[in-house]
């Protein structure tokens, strides 16, 4: 999409947004609450109309939301949008049927989707009896029966146990291997760092920055922290440590000394060898800048402020 503007009343929800999604990649979409992520997804899929700009879907810019194009789209919604009174299998049959699948092909795809998310044994159970993670998996399965080429996942792992989340992330990676392009919205940095090939950051309706995860982290010269557990902190050569190139701050607390340096200064060796000369090293831990820091630097806001709808 290019130059897309969308208003709700007088409030501009999307402000000259440009976004390109190429085939086969996983794009992570990050942004605090109210950034416009949901609106972006809604305009991208044709749910709401836009005021200015163009949207090209699968290469078609003139009236892009034809039935043919919609068949190649899949949406995993933020809330659980399945029928509670139908069984898992019936839910999948419904959504498959809506996408025009019939007969044996539909049966096959339903089985496939159930197996893919790991709910095959629960095919004939109703979602009211499922755990949170299982419901989310069903939510995802409903979007997969028609094998979409572009799958949009709106915060698919909110509020579920780590096991289910890992399962979902694995499934997402498998989907990419099978050739699906994925747009993944989330509050969780770890997920994006794990699966996204490219990240775009949104705030207040604008696209702030985009790039691969590494590019983004490099673009903000932030800190690296090294925590070293030592045998005796009183023997530490603090001034010498501070004078090592790149070191910004040295902090001693208990048996742990934390050295904060600029990212990329590559001084871990020097710091360690200096410390080793004076006292025994019991353990080390490094903290690298992560996407949360990138986010904070670029937008001045926390990514996670109580969760909730984007």
């Amino acid at each position: 999409m290019q130059g897309v503007v969308k208003r709700y009343g007088n409030a501009v929800a999307l402000d000259y947004v440009d976004l390109a999604i190429y085939e086969g990649e996983i794009v992570g979409l990050l942004g605090p609450n109210g950034a416009g992520k949901t609106t972006l997804i809604q305009t991208m899929t044709g749910m709401v109309p836009i005021e200015r700009g163009t949207i090209k879907l699968f290469g078609q810019s003139n009236n892009p939301f034809t039935h043919a194009n919609k068949e190649k789209l899949g949406l995993v919604t933020q809330e659980i949008t399945v029928y509670d009174e139908l069984t898992a299998k019936e839910n999948l049959q419904f959504f498959a049927g809506v996408y025009g699948l019939k007969g044996s092909e539909r049966k096959e795809r339903v089985q496939e989707a159930l197996a893919f998310v790991g709910l095959a044994e629960y095919a004939d159970k109703v979602p009211t009896k499922f755990s949170g993670g299982m419901k989310r998996r069903l939510n995802i399965a409903c979007a997969l029966t028609h094998r979409p080429k572009l799958l949009i996942m709106d915060e698919p792992t909110v509020g579920i146990d780590p096991q289910s989340r890992n399962h979902i992330l694995e499934s997402v990676k498998k989907l990419q291997e099978q050739g699906t392009t994925i747009l993944y919205t989330t509050h969780y940095m770890e997920e994006v760092q794990e699966i996204a090939s490219r990240v775009v950051i949104m705030d207040q309706g604008q696209m702030i920055k985009g790039g691969t995860v590494d590019q983004l982290i490099q673009s903000i010269q932030h800190e690296e922290r090294i925590h070293i557990d030592v045998a005796d902190t009183s023997l530490l050569p603090v001034e010498q440590l501070q004078s090592i190139a790149g070191v910004m701050h040295v902090d001693v607390a208990g048996t742990r000394v934390t050295v904060i340096s600029t990212a990329g200064s590559g001084n871990v060796d020097r710091i360690l060898s200096l410390v080793k000369e004076y006292t025994g090293v019991l353990g080390i831990q490094t903290e690298n800048p992560d996407l949360e820091d990138v986010f904070l630097t670029l937008t001045g806001k926390q990514l996670r402020d109580g969760g909730g709808e984007a």
Binding site: M47, L75, I80
Partner: peptide, 13 residues
């Protein structure tokens, strides 16, 4: 209310 219309609105329906 459950949001199924969201799914249906992007379906070829």
């Amino acid at each position: 209310m459950s949001g199924v219309v969201k799914r249906l609105s992007i379906a070829p329906l």
